[in-house]
Amino acid sequence: MDIETVKIRADKVQVFYGENHAIKDVDVNILDKTVTAFIGPSGCGKSTFLRCLNRMNDTIPSCRVEGGITLDGEDIYDPRVDPVQLRAKVGMVFQKPNPFPKSIYDNVAYGPRIHGLTRSKAELDEVVEKSLRRAALWNEVKDRLQAPGTGLSGGQQQRLCIARAVATEPEVLLMDEPCSALDPIATAQVEELIDELRENFSVVIVTHSMQQAARVSQKTAFFHLGNLVEYGETTQIFTNPRDPRTESYITGRIG
């Protein structure tokens, strides 16, 4: 594996929620310009591990992270790192859609505004349109950009959150089950977006759909009870799993 292309390196990561040991000894290298899928049964720690990668776990008082995680070789848990700056680089789409109770436009424009990414209103309009197009939402909302984002359907809200996350042009995009509330058409559009993002960014996607993992990802990590059981090329994981637990999960026997 070429060291140049490693974007995020996790080294013996442990996560505790109080006494609960949620992530145990996870080592993983997430490559640049690659889609990595995290699969595993519910409660195995996929979201928890994902949230370590942009330090969203900092907001949970009981949560403790040990081990090392580096982004482009820099330790993201170093005391010199401002998590705010990190999160501008590592964007996130949450498991439950959480649009701001503001207009659709303001939802998408919020990130670029606080990071000062645009210089004029026209430029901002452009970013908003581009982001909404990438999230396959533009056609549905282009006539009501000033309508409240919370007035959209669940699936539309999720795509709005995706648009909001890509508007800041993050280097890594963490997506926690982005398609769980979407219909097959919107799912296909989001998968297309993920594929497109791969040209420039690194994408990590948590999914419960084996087909989706097989379709969009190049690398797959299988988590089970807080352990990273198997990590490798997606084709290899799905056709020729090395661990019996992986095999039983992808064939539907545990989970």
Binding site: T59, R87, G91, M92, F94, N98, Y110
Partner: peptide, 27 residues
């Protein structure tokens, strides 16, 4: 104010203060 709103703001890289003044206080 639902915690998911705070997560959303922090997730796009807002600082704690921005999160509070832009989202939590108005709500």
């Amino acid at each position: 104010v639902p915690p998911s709103i705070r997560d959303a703001a922090l997730g796009v890289g807002a600082s704690k203060l921005q999160t509070v003044f832009h989202h939590v206080l108005p709500l």
